[in-house]
Design a binder for these strands. Structure first.
Lengths: 263, 263
DNA sequence: TCGGCGCGATGTCAAATGACACTGCCCGGT
DNA sequence: ACCGGGCAGTGTCATTTGACATCGCGCCGA
């Protein structure tokens, strides 16, 4: 079920991450070009630049944050995709959400609480690092950023609400269609994918752990969707031929496009 | 499935809610006495008082917010319990969360987005009303409150994460035990329930719609839990005899007590 | 006093989903 | 060339969960 406990990924995950010397200045932030993300203005960007302490890189499979610890750093995704998941004591794993460029990683750390989930890189990633202890300064000195932060938290909450509806009300095929559409659109909005297709390595085991299905049933349902020509999801590629058909198959409503602020 | 479309509740729900003349001054806010809630200080309370525009009352079954509209007001729960749910086009309903005193209702409204869920009163409730358009002032003029707001959003997100794990990884009985423990503890923290028992009218149909189970299966699983002497859940009362046993049965970890700020 | 209604409970059967054991394929290391 | 590991796919059978029909009970209003 949880495939994160194989020896290799553990040893990789536990080595300390050196702060990379080179860092992108915020005024040249590559995320500016993402439709789907609304960039902060000049003043805010200066503030963010000062707040940002460094950059970090992780390779696919590495753990960025570990459930149960009190983290001292927050991150923001500059490049790549990650997952956020929780482990139960008996080894069951629930993947809670995927993280794309612009997303905030580890907001819980800001409130000196223990993390309730782990975060793992799905691709090689670059993250912006922010110190937790200066977090409160943010709200004081730049209200608009603080507002954006609340916005981001609310947005993430809405995403979880969507997933919750999926797990609670949709059957296996609908869930798969929903997740495929969700990921492809997230990818499109953050510059990771072309229209209708997302190149991202996701194993069926990970899909199963996200959707609350068994591995075998996930496999069979994926095949069914492939036969229906709705979603073609392979190890390295998710492609949705007819977005509207897939959306209606999965009973998705609401507007897919709401530009999000980021930090 | 969705029982909210019976004619009676609809007519009740659609009448306009007169702003009640009498309102509790924030300095006498009854929530001060809730362990489980950390009260704002004097200065903050003054600011909240100025921000608060009125109070509203709803009776059990009334709709407070409706999915798909752009609300102009935010609420805070002063007294009572509500549910937040989403309807799918074919009538399936997913209850997303329960709202207890101190909780924020309709944060999405702050970002001029369409609401993705409806909110309905489970008991007679009293709400504090805040205008949406003065919301941004909050962040500017009182950073600590803005910080608390982010905190609350993050807390709600964590709760949804818990529910997501439940729907994704737990079987019917575990989900029921989890939900019972969750509700009783939420009730205890907000002064609604005595230790181990919560008096709150929840139909099995509502439980089913929260946990993604069929009505019949919910019924049978509840009976099973009753036979196991873990949870006794009737229409009007939830009682958990042995909290620790129930928590471990449902594979719940983490600290149940984190005092939350409120507004 | 009668009927309607909301809610819980049950019996029976069907469908969805899971568990387990096994195969084939690809790929990288030696 | 061989081995081992990760991953998708399959066959078979068990378990969980859902669908549908029905009953009992308490409540309330005509």
């Amino acid at each position: 079920m949880a495939d994160s406990d194989d020896p290799k990924s553990l040893t990789i995950a536990s080595r300390q991450q050196p702060a990379s010397a080179d860092r992108v200045p915020c005024k040249e932030c590559p995320l500016i070009h993402c439709r789907g993300l609304s960039a902060p203005d000049e003043g805010q960007r200066a503030w963010i630049e000062a707040f940002k302490s460094s950059e970090a890189r992780y390779v696919r499979g590495e753990q960025v944050l570990r459930q149960g610890v009190r983290a001292t750093r927050l991150f923001t995704v500059l490049e790549g995709v990650l997952i956020r998941y929780r482990l139960l004591e008996d080894g069951r794993r629930q993947i809670v959400n995927f993280l794309f460029p612009g997303d905030l990683v580890g907001l819980q750390a800001a409130f000196e609480a223990e993390l309730t989930h782990s975060v793992e890189a799905m691709t090689d990633v670059r993250l912006c690092v922010f110190p937790r202890d200066r977090f409160f300064d943010l709200a004081v000195s730049h209200p608009k950023l603080s507002f954006d932060l609340t916005w981001m938290a609310a947005r993430e909450e809405a995403a979880l609400e969507d997933h919750l509806v999926s797990l609670g009300q949709r059957n296996a095929q609908e869930r798969l269609a929903y997740l495929a559409v969700f990921l492809v659109q997230r990818g499109a909005a953050t510059g990771v994918s072309r229209e209708g297709t997302l190149r991202l390595t996701v194993t069926q085991s990970q899909i199963a752990d996200m959707l609350g299905l068994s591995l075998v049933h996930t496999n069979r349902s994926l095949q069914a969707l492939r036969r229906l020509k709705l979603v073609d999801w392979t190890l390295s590629t998710i492609s949705v031929h007819d977005m509207e058909a897939a959306r209606s198959f999965a009973q998705m409503d609401g507007d897919p496009y709401i530009p999000r602020p980021y930090i």
